[in-house]
Write a protein that binds this DNA or RNA. Sequence first.
DNA 1: TTTCGAAACCGAAACGTTTCGTTCTTCCAT
DNA 2: ATGGAAGAACGAAACGTTTCGGTTTCGAAA
Lengths: 335, 335
Amino acid sequence: MAATIKDIAKQTGLGLATISSYLNGGNVREKNRVKIEAAIEELHYEVNVVARGLKTNRTKTIGVVIPELNNIFCSEIITGIEDILRSHGYGTIICDCRTDEKLEKEAVDFLYKKRADGIINMPVDPTGTHLQPFQKADKPIVLIDRKIQGVEADSVLVDNKAAAQHAIELLLRAGHTKIGLLGGPENVYTAQERYKGYKAAYEAAGLPWEESWIHHGDYTIRGGVEGLEKLVRDTDVTAVFVVNYEMTMGAMIGVNELGIKISEELSVIGFDNLLFARACRPKLTIVTQPTDEIAKHVADIILMRLEGTEEEKAQAKKTVKLQTEIVEGKSIRDL
Amino acid sequence: MAATIKDIAKQTGLGLATISSYLNGGNVREKNRVKIEAAIEELHYEVNVVARGLKTNRTKTIGVVIPELNNIFCSEIITGIEDILRSHGYGTIICDCRTDEKLEKEAVDFLYKKRADGIINMPVDPTGTHLQPFQKADKPIVLIDRKIQGVEADSVLVDNKAAAQHAIELLLRAGHTKIGLLGGPENVYTAQERYKGYKAAYEAAGLPWEESWIHHGDYTIRGGVEGLEKLVRDTDVTAVFVVNYEMTMGAMIGVNELGIKISEELSVIGFDNLLFARACRPKLTIVTQPTDEIAKHVADIILMRLEGTEEEKAQAKKTVKLQTEIVEGKSIRDL
DNA sequence: TTTCGAAACCGAAACGTTTCGTTCTTCCAT
DNA sequence: ATGGAAGAACGAAACGTTTCGGTTTCGAAA
C-alpha cells in the first residue's frame, strides 16, 4: 500500500542504494536529487523506521524510568527531556514505577525488550542491579538525582548537601537555633545528602543540634503530616526545614490541622514547586531545584553518547552537579 | 551476537515456523516445547520486536499527546494509562505539546512517523485536523476530556456540565445568590460545558445571574489570579466557583495577596487536586474528576480496538461520560 | 496391522531498509 | 584528446521475524 524505497527507485530510474544514500544525507547529483524529491512528494513516501531499525539495530527510542510521574519534580524534568529528545527524532517511552523496586526492574526489562537505545532513570533501587541489561548491552544510561556506586553511567545531580546547608544557614541567621528537619528515608541518597547539609550548617556555626529534632520521613504527603505533628508535639523547635515537595505539602496540611500560624509560631522552609509555595499563606520560603537545567543536561548527555563522535562516546562517564536556589517567601520569622 | 529464532531452530532441530508458532502461542508437541524452552534458556533468546514489527506492521507502541504534563489532571491519567498499557506489552510514547496547536500537530506527525499503533489525545486544536494521519491510516484514536465533531474516534469525557451544576447548586443551597465563575476559554469544550452547568443551576433554581459575575480565564495560574482580583474588585459576589486546578491555585494566590479570608469573606469551590485542596487554609471544597477511571476506560478502549475481536474493532465509536464528585472542605459559608 | 483425518511441522518468500564491494560518470590535469 | 582519481550509482545480501501452502507425524478406529 504505502510507497517504499523501491517505488522511488522505480519511479526515478535510480538504484535502491542511491535513494537510501539520499535519505541518509549522502551526496546525490543535483538532477537526481530533484527527481527523488519529486517522486517522494508524488508517492507520499515516508521512510519505514521499523525496517530501518531492523538493519541499524537502533530504534531512536529512549526509555525513562521514574518513581512517580505525579510529582512536579519528575514531571518538569520529563517535560524538558522529552521536548529535546523529540526534536532530535527520539521517542520517549515513560515508565512510572511507583517508587517500587520490583516494578522498577520490570520497567527496565520492558524497555530493554522494546530495544530502547538508552535509558534515563531516577533510581529507586540503590544497588542499581536493575540496570544490568543496559549495562551489559553497553547502551547508555543516565542517572538523575541519585548516584549509584558501581554502575557505569553518567549522572546529573543536584548539590543536595549545599541546598540543605544554605537553607539551615538562612534559619540560623534569622536567629533560630532549634531547627527541625523533616528528612527523607535514610537509605536514599538525596535524603542522606540533605541530612549532611543540615549537620554541616550546625557545625559551621559551631552550634549543637539534637537527634530528636530530626524526623526521617518517607517522602510522602502522609509522612509529612505525621513528621510535622511529631516535631511540634515532642520538641520545642522554632523552625522546620522540609526536604521534598510531598512532605512540604504534608507539613502544610499538618500545620493547618493543628491551627499553627506559620512564621509567628513556626518558621518553615519547604522544597520544590514554586507555585505551591506562592499559594500558601503566608508564602512559603523554599529551595527550588533547576529542573530545566537538569533536563537539558540529561538530554544532551544521552544524545552525545548516542550520536556523538567516537571519542565523545568513549569519554569517561561524567557527573554533573547543579546548584539549587532559595526563593524567599514570608514563612520565616526573625527572632 | 544475540540469538535469533534460527539459532533456536538449529539447536532444537526444529523448523523456523515451529519456533515462531511456539512464540506466538501456537500448539507444539510436549517434547518439542521442552526442547524449545531449554534452547531459549540456554541461548538467552529474546524475540526481536523490531523484526516482528516489520512483518506484522505493528509496533506495540501507543502515542499520547497532551497539553501539559505538568498538570496533575494529565499526569494522573497518564500514570494510569501507562500502567495498563505496559502490562499488555505496549510502550507509551508521551508528547507534551504545551497547549500549542502547532506543536500538537507536530507531535501527532512525529508519532505517526514512529508508527505508533494508535493515539490517545487530550486535544488542543478543537477542529481535530491534526489527527488526520491516524484517521486516514485507520488507526485507533481515543480522545480524552474534549470531544471533537467530525473526527471518528472514541471519547472518554467527564460530565462537566453536571459537575458545574452541582457545585453551583451547593452554593445556592448555602444561601449564596451572587456567585462568580472563574471559567475557562470560550472556545474550549470543557469550559463551555462548565459554563452551561453554571447557567443551568441558576435556571433550575429560578434565580437570575449577571454577565459581570462571569470571567472567562485562560486556564492558567496567572489567569486565575487576575480573574479573582477582577471579580472581587468589580462585583459583589459572595462566592466563586473556579473551573480548573491551575486557576484554583491562582485564585488562592490572589486571595492571599488581597488578604481575603476564605469562607468568612468569600466562599470558594475549586477544581481537581484533592491534595492541594487539603493543604489550603481553610480546606477547600472541590470538584474532583475520576482520573483513575478515565485512565482505565481510555486504556481499555484502545486495547479493545487493537486486540479485540473483529466485531469489537468494528463497533461504532463510543463515548463514555463519567461523573465527578464533590469533596467538601470548609471553604463555604452558610449565609 | 492398516487407514485416515487432524494436528504438528516445515522451508521459502516476504516485510523495507542499509551496506558492501563493484562498476560507471564526471571532470580536471596533463 | 586522454588518463585517472574522486565521487556517484548500483544490485545483492542481510537484518530477524511471520505466513503461506504443502508435507509429515500421530493416534484412534477399523
